[in-house]
Structures are given as C-alpha cells and as structure tokens.
Write a protein that binds this DNA or RNA. Structure first.
Length: 267
DNA sequence: CTCAGTGTTCAGTG
DNA sequence: TCACTGAACACTGA
C-alpha cells in the first residue's frame, strides 16, 4: 500500500487516534518487529507514559512527536499500515499486528505489516538525522519552484523512471506514482534524464504535484482516483490490459521494478 | 508448486 | 563518485 498518499493516510489515522493523549501501554506481539538499532524494550520505554503531540511525515517516513525524547520513527515497507480501534478484549489484536500502542481511554493504534519489510526506530531529532535527512523534497508539502526543480533534474543522469524512484530526489514517490506521472506527462519511462526538454521537465513537476494532491484528497482510496489514471489498469503484468481509452498497456522492468507504460502515448 | 510484489539496502561491476 | 544490476529480506495471494 504505501507510497506518499498511503503514508499520509496512516499519519492522519495515528493523529486521530492518539494526538494529545498519554500512551498507557505498548505491545510487541511475539517476534520482534523489524527494529532498527533499538529493541522492543527501548520502544516501550520511550513511549509508555509519554504524550503524543503530533505525527509528522516526510516522503514515506513518518514519526511520532512526543512530549519528551526520543521519538518514534516508522516506515511502512511494502505492506505496513495503521489501524485504529477501541480496546475490548485484553488479547485481541488485528492480524499481522507488529506493534500496538494503547492510549488513555482504551484507544488503540496498531502497526500491521504482513510482509515485515516495515521498520521502526527511535530518533532524537528525526528531521535532522538519517534516514529523513537524506531524503529529497516532499511533493505534497514542499514541492520546489520550477527553477529549483529544473536544477535538481539537471544534476541527475540515468533514466527518468529511476530518477522519480530515487528518494533522494523526490521523497515519497514509489512505483505506481512514478508510472502515473510519466504516463500523464506522456514520457517514455526509459528516456534519459539528459534528453528531457525544458517543457517536459515542467510537465513532470506539474503532474507529480497533481497526482499526489489528488490521491491524498481522496484519502488514498484508489476507487476514487480519476477514471483516466493508468493506476486502474497497471497491475499484474496483464498482457491484455488497456487504458480507459483502449490503448494497450505494456510491462517492462526498469530500474529494477515492474514498469507499466503505454507505447502509443508515451514518447 | 511457482511467481510476482505500492520498498530499501547492500555488494559487486563498469 | 555515480549509475546500474541482482540479490536479499518475509510473506501472501493469485
């Protein structure tokens, strides 16, 4: 699920459940969550008794701001998500729950992650330390102006799909957003960055901003994405897949990822 | 049973 | 240093 819009959705859920509330309990069911440089015990110690003041996000990285340090850093990996609910049974938890945070009043927030590529860690000042400090701009909160965007692009080499996927360039763009941007900008994903014309670079910036904004506006409910988006037809390497207006969708591997594109449209 | 997968990292190569 | 490839991670569902 998680590219920028899905992570933003998770951020909102976390705030709705716990913002302004004291954390009363932390559960880490059976096997350790994939913890980065810290133990489940350290996570419990950091959270228990603290008040959640805000949940922030940059790209696909998200962190819980507390009334004391350190703070909790969360990455959703491939299948991570947040789920909010009210505690009723002492032991009942969602399937694939890796971490559960219980706030005052029995309000619970679970981090679920079937595939366990998600990451959880502690940081004193997330924005100023890796991995967040290494990220590029966030296309929702801090899209650079056109001149700056052009400079960032001009400093890069390689194919344009790889550029969009690079978190050090645009934080939060993942496989489907990259493909959607290039489809809507009518640019062949294999094109070299050096070959892009000035107006193509400008178009990439505009479509990236619009796609992210639209996906966030509908809370990442993909059924509500515009019917014209490639998104609805890109999955499964389906050789018979067609766009909304009947053009064949092709699948190739670029930058190590399955890439869906429409040869008739993208040049 | 096999394979691909909305992500990241690391080792190896050019 | 940069760009690129492939493998690894762990597990589900088609």
């Amino acid at each position: 699920m998680p590219e920028l819009p899905e992570v933003e959705r998770g951020r909102e859920i976390a705030e709705q459940v716990g913002r302004g509330r004291v954390i009363e309990a932390v559960h880490c069911p059976r096997d350790p969550i994939a913890l980065v440089k810290c133990s489940a015990a350290a996570v419990g110690r950091a959270l228990r008794g603290a008040t959640l003041t805000a949940v922030a996000r940059h790209g696909k990285q998200m962190w819980f701001e507390l009334d004391r340090r350190p703070w909790l850093l969360v990455h959703f990996g491939m299948t991570g998500a947040f789920e909010g609910y009210l505690r009723r049974d002492r032991t009942e938890r969602p399937r694939f729950c890796r971490l559960e945070i219980e706030f005052e009043g029995g309000r619970c927030l679970a981090f679920t992650d079937p595939r366990r590529f998600g990451r959880i860690g502690l940081a004193h000042d997330p924005r100023r330390e890796p991995p967040v400090s290494r990220l590029g701009f966030d296309p929702l909160d801090s899209m650079p102006d056109l001149a700056t965007f052009r400079r960032l692009v001009a400093a890069r080499r390689g194919n344009v799909k790889g550029l969009l996927l690079d978190q050090g360039f645009a934080a939060g763009v993942g496989n489907w957003i990259a493909d959607e941007v290039l489809y809507q900008a009518r640019i062949d994903p294999r094109r070299r960055v050096e070959s892009l014309a000035a107006d193509e670079v400008a178009l990439i910036r505009r479509r990236l901003a619009a796609i992210v904004r639209t996906a966030v506006r509908v809370n990442s409910v993909s059924e509500r994405f515009p019917r014209t988006w490639l998104f609805h037809h890109r999955w499964g390497r389906d050789a018979s897949a067609r766009t909304h207006d009947g053009r064949p969708v092709r699948h190739v591997t670029i930058a190590g990822r399955t890439t869906a594109w429409v040869p008739g449209v993208q040049r």
